[in-house]
């Protein structure tokens, strides 16, 4: 019954369908990338200077870059990196933030104060600037950019998990479980966590898109992935030097970033309608 309602809600909404299609496309590109690209040699950075900076043509749909690599090939290969990073960042952030949040929400008292004030502190600097500060300290590179973004991202999960745990703590069924002699750990694991899951899934879906955008932003700024890596943001940062004459260089990587962020956002919106219908759509 619930599954049929879910299917109905998904099919009724054009946005959710579009989001689902875009996400499916990105996942397919990430999985199949190396097998479907037109020029597999270009993945490893073959240099083919006679072919450099070719405009879009039948042979190279989105043109070639400054060393003669097919841009479409490199963008498709980049999907895997972006998707992996986009999933890893919210996942790691949730693994740090959710236990802390549930702990804060159920424990209360001084521990809660300490956790929540630390969370507020991290939330007091807007994400991108904090990430830049952390990358400046750790040194540029995709690994450090990921660490920086995880450090920026976890507080959001503390907030959600804490407010959910706080709301659930007062529910009669928790009291019943406690009266029945369930241990604190069991209550957290069996009752509080599953009931906090819906908003967390919605947030993670949205955050995958935002994380893809964030890592591309750092790549574009020259603080993330370094150029031979086929990372979308880093590609656009090189392409910028070839504007306006070689305009096609920047089009394809940017379009893929846009498509993935849009896809995960729309999917998150749709998931919210299904999983968490009472929440306010801001």
């Amino acid at each position: 019954m619930r599954a049929r309602l879910a299917v109905h809600l998904v099919r009724r909404s054009f946005g959710t369908m579009l989001g689902l299609a875009l996400v499916a496309m990105i996942i397919a590109l990430a999985l199949l990338g190396p097998f479907i690209v037109p020029y597999p040699d270009d993945v490893l950075g073959a240099v083919n200077l006679t072919n450099k900076l070719q405009p879009p043509s039948a042979a190279h749909w989105f043109g070639t870059d400054e060393v003669g690599n097919d841009i479409l090939t490199r963008v498709i290969i980049g999907a895997r990196l972006s998707l992996l990073v986009g999933i890893a960042i919210p996942l790691a952030a949730a693994l740090i933030g959710v236990p802390l949040g549930i702990l804060a929400g159920t424990a209360g008292g001084g521990l809660r104060e300490a956790i929540m004030r630390l969370t507020d502190l991290f939330l007091s600097v807007p994400g991108l600037v904090l990430a830049i500060a952390l990358v400046a300290a750790l040194g540029p590179g995709i690994g450090n950019a990921m660490i920086a973004l995880i450090l920026v991202w976890w507080p959001g999960y503390v907030r959600i998990a804490e407010s959910k745990a706080l709301a659930i703590r007062e529910e009669p069924f928790i009291e019943a479980a406690r009266a029945a002699g369930a241990s604190q750990v069991r209550i957290l694991w069996r009752h509080v966590l599953p009931n906090s899951l819906s908003p967390l899934i919605v947030k993670m879906s949205m955050d995958i898109g935002q994380a893809i955008l964030a890592i591309a932003s750092l790549g574009f700024l020259g603080l993330g992935a370094k150029p031979p890596t086929p990372e979308w943001g880093a590609m656009i940062s090189i392409a910028r030097g070839y504007l306006p004459d070689w305009w096609w260089y920047a089009i394809c990587p940017g379009a893929l970033i846009y498509a993935s962020v849009l896809g995960f956002n729309l999917l998150g919106d749709g998931l919210r309608d299904i999983l968490d219908p009472r929440s306010n759509r801001g």
Partner: peptide
């Protein structure tokens, strides 16, 4: 929806390309 998903640096480049350069 597009306002939140458009990468600002890419949108900026597109505007530079279209309105400023061309």
């Amino acid at each position: 929806v597009s306002g939140i998903a458009l990468p600002p640096f890419w949108f900026g480049l597109l505007l530079q390309l279209g309105i400023a350069s061309s």
